[in-house]
Lab assay of single mutants.
Amino acid sequence: MWEAGIQHIELEKGSKGLGFSILDYQDPIDPASTVIIIRSLVPGGIAEKDGRLLPGDRLMFVNDVNLENSSLEEAVEALKGAPSGTVRIGVAKPLP
């Protein structure tokens, strides 16, 4: 389960991407759907250096692409398709 509020994070995407990987996970509230979760951070990558994204965070959007009900493929496309420079990411943090 995740917090209702969405944290807005801006990262600078370079030639090596944003520095994290994702996975799809069965939604605990709606078993028929999936949620997109941050799986891991690349050591020394943009996301790890920034410090705000953590494994277990739920990915909600990338720039103007809503990922609340997306497939893993759609989420990967949104991340890979984001141009270099500032990328806006929304995440919901896990409940304590």
Results as ranks from 00 to 15, higher is better:
I9C: 06
I38S: 00
S84K: 08
S40T: 10
Y25K: 15
A32Y: 14
F61M: 14
G19V: 00
G51C: 04
S33T: 12
G44P: 00
I22M: 08
V65G: 03
V91S: 07
P31F: 07
L95I: 12
I89Q: 00
S15T: 12
E48M: 05
S71C: 13
P55T: 11
E12C: 11
R58V: 02
L53I: 15
P55M: 09
M1Q: 03
Q7W: 05
P28R: 11
D24H: 04
T34R: 14
P43S: 10
V42K: 10
K16H: 06
I9D: 00
E77L: 10
P28Y: 05
L59D: 00
D24R: 06
R58A: 04
A4S: 13
L67N: 00
V65Q: 14
K49R: 11
P28C: 08
T86A: 07
I37M: 14
A92D: 03
S33C: 12
G81I: 11
E68C: 08
A75N: 01
L18F: 06
G85R: 04
F20V: 07
I46S: 13
A92W: 04
N66Q: 15
G81N: 14
F20E: 00
I9P: 00
P43E: 14
L59G: 01
I38K: 00
E3N: 05
G17R: 03
E12M: 10
L23I: 14
S15D: 06
A32Q: 05
V76W: 13
K80M: 08
P28E: 15
P55D: 04
N66M: 11
A78H: 08
L95G: 05
I9N: 01
G44E: 04
S21F: 11
A4N: 12
V91G: 01
L54A: 15
A47K: 01
E73G: 05
N63K: 01
L54R: 09
S15Q: 14
I89E: 01
L59K: 01
L72M: 13
A82M: 12
M1E: 07
G45H: 04
T34Y: 09
A75D: 00
G85L: 03
I89Y: 02
D64T: 08
A82I: 10
G81Q: 12
S21A: 08
D57N: 09
V42Y: 13
G45M: 05
T34S: 13
L53V: 15
I38F: 02
L11A: 01
D24C: 03
E12P: 07
I89T: 00
M1I: 11
A78S: 10
D64I: 01
M1K: 15
L18E: 02
T86F: 11
I9T: 04
R39G: 15
F20L: 06
S70W: 06
R58G: 02
D24T: 05
L41F: 04
E77V: 11
V87C: 05
A75V: 04
Y25P: 08
F20Q: 00
G45C: 03
A92L: 13
I46K: 12
V35F: 09
D64P: 01
S15I: 08
S21D: 15
V91P: 00
G44D: 15
L23W: 15
I37F: 05
G44C: 10
F20C: 02
A75M: 02
I36K: 04
E10P: 08
A32D: 15
P83D: 04
D27E: 13
P83N: 08
D57A: 13
Q7L: 06
G85E: 04
D30R: 08
F20D: 00
S84W: 12
S71N: 10
A4K: 08
E12K: 12
M60P: 00
S70E: 09
G5K: 05
E68V: 10
N66F: 05
